[in-house]
Computed example of a mutant assay.
Amino acid sequence: MFQTSRDGDFMPRWGRAVYVALMVAIVGWAWLQHARGRTRVGADGITVRGALRERHVPWSDIYDIRAEPFRNRRLDGPLLFAYLYRHDGRRTPLRQMDDWQVADFAAEFEELRGTAVRHRATAWERRPETEELIRLRAGRRRAWEHSVTGALIALAAMFPVMIVRVVIGAAVHPFLLFVCVPAAVFAVVAVVQRRRWRSLVPAYMCEP
């Protein structure tokens, strides 16, 4: 029988501790991203500082700089983000470069691209093989997002299952419900979604 720390509690102590730790981690990560996030442009390339680390990308490694729509648009949120793409298709978000935090985003973005052209000493040119890598990584990112979403939905669904089992007096296995089931859902969704990654590529990336 599933034992709780107090009568009437459906979640064990370790479950509450994990939940609190998760919430603190999410809020802390968001705060660090906002407080530390910066994009610096210099003669040797672009440096992006995130919550915990900095990444420097030399001009020679930059394939393109693009403004792309935010996937989950909100009326009070940013609609466009600036991203840096490398020759292998990897994407790096340029922190604090969006039309929510930058008053004249279009002008700032064009100035950034102009600066990049001057330092790269070459104009922007799209290459089919790099564009395919960009689409591949975009599809796999979306597959990852779907897998995480599926796991979170499964995790949320386990709470009413646990409550029902407690009410009817059935055995409850927290590790099975809150770890094994979400992990299994994540794995299944990940396998299925990665196989159909082309259908997950955003429409604007498929335009010529």
Rank of each mutant, 00 (worst) to 15 (best):
P182D: 08
R90W: 01
A171L: 10
R165A: 07
V41I: 09
V166S: 01
R194S: 09
D7P: 01
H56P: 01
L152T: 12
F159H: 04
W124E: 13
R53G: 05
R90M: 08
A171F: 03
A143Q: 10
A183T: 14
M11P: 00
R126H: 10
G114W: 10
E132Q: 12
A106D: 15
R6L: 15
Q101P: 04
H146P: 00
S60D: 15
T130F: 01
R195L: 15
R196Y: 11
G169W: 06
I163N: 07
I153K: 14
V172Y: 07
Y83K: 07
V191K: 11
D76Q: 12
F10T: 06
A183K: 04
P208Y: 11
R127T: 10
R73T: 12
D104F: 06
V48R: 00
W197K: 01
F10R: 15
L84W: 00
E108Y: 03
D98Y: 03
D64V: 00
L22C: 14
T39W: 05
A156Y: 04
V164Q: 04
H119I: 01
A203R: 10
R66F: 08
D99G: 12
R53L: 14
T47I: 01
F175P: 04
R16S: 14
V181M: 06
A157D: 02
Y85I: 00
G139V: 05
G169L: 11
E125L: 13
L84P: 00
A103R: 12
P174E: 02
M162I: 02
R113K: 15
A187L: 10
A184K: 08
L177R: 00
L133H: 00
Q101C: 14
H146T: 08
R142I: 09
R126Y: 10
V20N: 08
D61S: 15
I163C: 03
Q101N: 07
R16I: 07
A51H: 07
V201F: 12
A156N: 12
I62V: 14
A183Y: 05
G77E: 09
T115H: 13
P182V: 12
A123F: 10
L176F: 12
D104Q: 10
M23T: 14
A138W: 04
M158E: 08
L94G: 03
L52N: 13
E54Q: 11
E68W: 06
L112M: 07
L136N: 05
E131L: 15
R126F: 11
F109V: 11
A154N: 03
R196D: 13
L84I: 14
M23C: 13
R40C: 05
P208D: 09
E145R: 05
D9S: 14
R195G: 15
Y19D: 06
W124F: 14
G139W: 01
A154K: 09
F109R: 07
E111W: 06
A143I: 13
D104M: 07
A203S: 08
Q3E: 08
A156V: 03
R6Q: 14
A138S: 11
L133D: 04
V41Y: 02
E207C: 10
L200G: 01
E108S: 07
L112H: 09
L22V: 14
Q96A: 13
D9P: 02
